[in-house]
Computed example of a mutant assay.
Amino acid sequence: METKIIQISAGTGPTECAFVVAKVLKIFLKELINNKVAYLILHKENGLQNGTVQSVSIQLKGNQLADFLKDWLGTIQWIGTSTFRKYNKRKNWFIGCFEVESNESLSIKENEIQFQAIRSSGAGGQHVNKVSSAVRAKHTKTGLQVLVMDSRSQHQNKKIAIKRLQEKVSNFNMEQSKIQLENQWMNHKTVERGNPIRVFTGTDFKQKKKVKSFKNKRNHLKNDLRKQL
């Protein structure tokens, strides 16, 4: 199962672009559900007007995410009339959908964990301190650690420690990702206006299907062939 982080952003675009982000977000989440892709909204920056979103970052988990995202990553265009500025004549609005590189993996490897066996100090009578059954596990990359003394079996405590440390490191990485994403959306200051990957029209945001034309490509191939001859 793959994990990716996606950001849909209006960049420094006007309120209309933030309106488009909010509308596109609903369509995007609906397609995630239809394609059985799990998601978690990591950070959302609301726009200045009600019902608008300046930027949103989403963690995706699923299979074949690259195939799903190939129809989303890039510039997204909406053709419609502004509802915020009555006399604005502009009809074309652009936002961006980007993949965010994650520095930290949300999983840890056992060779990244240091284990220390210590004597239990809980209830158990006179025999509890004679065996070093408790386990302290430390993740070397983050310094996070857990102490487990649930069982009299050191092996069982080690298994529990790995699971709890995994959860702790995952929560830590999630918080780091949120902090990173809160400051990152402004990096997309300019959204490319040409060659949109998706085009929506009207207030109901119907998708405008692209009509693929191979005429220009054929002409280029013919010219290249003539040059070779």
Rank of each mutant, 00 (worst) to 15 (best):
Q228A: 09
G96K: 01
K222E: 12
V20Y: 09
K168V: 06
G122P: 08
R226M: 03
T203A: 15
K222L: 13
R152A: 12
Q184E: 10
I95Q: 10
L165A: 03
M174A: 10
T140P: 05
L69A: 01
T190C: 00
F94V: 14
T142M: 13
S107Y: 14
V191E: 00
V191N: 09
L29I: 15
E192G: 13
L32P: 06
F84H: 08
A134I: 07
I179H: 12
N88K: 10
G202I: 10
W78P: 06
I79K: 04
L42S: 04
D150F: 03
N157E: 08
S177N: 14
C97Q: 00
K208M: 12
I108W: 09
I8P: 09
G13K: 02
L29Q: 15
N34K: 15
I197E: 01
N50R: 11
R85S: 09
Q145D: 15
K86I: 10
K26A: 15
Y39N: 12
Q207R: 09
Q49K: 15
Q59G: 09
V56H: 05
T142G: 14
K168E: 08
Q166R: 07
D71G: 03
K206P: 06
F214C: 02
T142H: 12
D224K: 14
G74P: 02
G13S: 00
G47E: 02
V20E: 11
S120I: 01
R193Y: 04
L65A: 06
L65W: 05
